[in-house]
Nucleic acid binder design. Structure first.
Lengths: 216, 216
DNA sequence: GTTCGCCTAGTTCCTATTGACTATTGCTGC
DNA sequence: GCAGCAATAGTCAATAGGAACTAGGCGAAC
């Protein structure tokens, strides 16, 4: 089995190369970035590419698509430090064939690579199940983020910083009652019942990209 | 050079064991948790212990202390995914001899281990410099995260999800008053005055790695 | 076997937040 | 001009949250 491995941790990369080699597999290239991985796949056309999901910049999911495009016969297996079912879903949707955790022993990783090469989906069943479950994009509170006004974004920022209504009013240069109204409207638009829930919503689902560019 | 390696990623652990072995070093034990590492060090008395910092809740930093105590001749070198100068300082203060990033090649890791065994400090100069600069480790709210109990981490999770005291009590299977007490203790330990500030603290500075592994 | 930390549970007092309203000002587009 | 919307400001009642305590049970450490 010819493999291209991609991870930003050189240590893991090299060690994994040696370990896979010791198990009789052919690691044809080690890549430190998704771009390197794409180039390596284009050159070597391996059976499988083991790709770390956790790249600074988060372009690893996009890399799946590119790899699949330039080398459709290459199966992509994602390697991750944590089991994140949201990422699993996106990865599979982009064309990945598997998703394994770094906490797994090497033999298990290799087994997953085997499964991917045989055309099977190499994902832990429980994880896949959770990845598929929350398919209700309707009634999505994140949709509402679009309709927040600039002022409400500023209020959101204050909320995220843990400010009280008073501090917020001070920061925005308005009366408490005004700040309060903004908070009220914000909560209503987001469909939540407390500023803490609003903050939780943002920190859980609202990536940096959710913020209006001019207010980030 | 006899080495004990500890990391929660079995993959890295095994691969690193093979790689170090291939370079002529003697990996006497592989540990998946700090406790296993401590036991392994007590048994084998290695020259050096390579310890992942990524065991939150202060486990890994506390483990340094314990390892140094039961086997003073064993040098401890921390292994980390990101260069966090705050952690470097704490680790060195606790008795670690080095701190290397996982993005380094194996040869460099081995060189650092060598330096540690020779009694030198195996830390990147630039990182050490930054670690020593901000001497205001006192009053650091993130320091307090180490002293949170398991229950308080569960409460923290509830807070992050925007739950009210009532929901929290329900989720934890305790009375509201108990949930309130936990929240109160949490706020006191973190030095903040509202759960919203606690949530802000976590979402702003508390990376995923801040969470105890068994509660993530 | 006593001390200590953690989890549990409760009280009291006070403040902050929320829901459900009304209402004025100023700007924009039809 | 006027409708619509954002931003401003306010009220009142009900609820939730926070500060500052006390205190028992339980297991681990000394």
């Amino acid at each position: 089995m010819r493999i291209v491995v991609c991870d930003d941790h050189l240590l893991l990369l090299e060690a994994l190369g040696l370990a896979l080699g010791a198990k009789g597999h052919d690691v044809v290239a080690l890549a430190g970035t998704p771009d390197e991985a794409i180039a390596a796949v284009a050159m070597h056309r391996p059976e499988v590419c083991l790709l770390d999901v956790n790249f600074p910049g988060g372009n690893s999911v996009a890399a799946i698509h590119q790899i699949r495009e330039i080398s459709p016969e290459t199966k992509v297996v994602m390697l991750s430090a944590e089991a994140d079912h949201a990422v699993v879903g996106r990865a599979i949707a982009e064309g990945a064939s598997g998703y394994v955790g770094k906490e797994k022993p090497i033999v298990e990783i290799i087994e997953m690579l085997d499964r991917a090469v045989r055309g099977q989906l190499a994902v832990e069943p429980a994880l896949l199940q959770r990845a598929l479950r929350p398919q209700k994009t309707t009634e999505d509170p994140l949709w509402a983020l679009q309709f927040l006004t600039d002022r409400e974004w500023q209020v959101m920022r204050c909320i995220m910083e843990g400010q009280t209504t008073e501090e917020m009013a001070e920061a925005l240069g308005v009366q408490r009652s005004t700040a309060r109204t903004h908070v009220q409207n914000l909560l209503t638009k987001l469909g939540v019942h407390s500023r803490l829930q609003a903050a939780a919503l943002m920190s859980a689902h609202g990536s940096h990209e959710s913020w209006p560019a001019h207010l980030r």
